[in-house]
């Protein structure tokens, strides 16, 4: 059961990470395209400023889970490493639970934020692109981060039980 869940989470975060990578490629293409269009044809891509912001938000949001899966969110571990096995597992259980709760609330509030932006019809200044879908994307990124943290929590609970 746990194995199946972990496999699903790994697959999902890898998939999201691939979309994140594509978004970064798109950022590069848009910026370079804008530079070339402006320099060569005096015809810049006017919405570049907005597109780059949205694409970067997509990339970062969707990469959060994969980043956590690889334990790449930096932490200070030299204190905990010196503690006994059991204490360490207990601490990890506690911090993981707190983190899941916090990011859970945060993503919920991002979704609320997106909702108000959608109701009010808020769009980006120059491109007129609606803002809310990208906030939803970031909220979803945090949701997938929580899924990863849940699998970390399961693992630390198993260590407590051992």
């Amino acid at each position: 059961m746990a194995k199946k869940y972990n496999g699903f989470v790994a697959g999902l975060s890898q998939f999201l990470d691939q979309i994140a990578g594509l978004s970064l490629v798109a950022v590069m293409l848009v910026v370079v395209g804008n530079v070339l269009m402006r320099a060569l044809f005096k015809h810049p891509i006017l919405g570049t400023y907005d597109y780059v912001g949205f694409l970067t938000a997509t990339a970062i949001g969707l990469a959060l889970a994969h980043c956590a899966l690889q334990n790449a969110h930096i932490a200070v571990d030299f204190v905990v490493e010196r503690l006994p096995h059991k204490t360490r597992a207990l601490i990890d259980t506690a911090t993981n639970s707190v983190a899941i709760t916090f990011w859970g609330f945060a993503l919920w509030n991002l979704a609320i934020y997106a909702g108000t932006m959608k109701t009010n019809g808020i769009v980006a200044a120059t491109s007129q692109l609606p803002v809310s879908p990208f906030i939803y994307l970031v909220a979803f990124g945090l949701f997938s981060l929580c899924l990863v943290l849940l699998s970390h929590l399961g693992e630390s609970l198993r260590r407590v039980a051992r």
Partner: peptide
């Protein structure tokens, strides 16, 4: 928190 997260992630200057 919601605003800071989205503003940072979607910042043109930080891209």
């Amino acid at each position: 928190v919601a605003k800071e997260i989205f503003n940072t992630f979607s910042s043109y200057s930080l891209s």
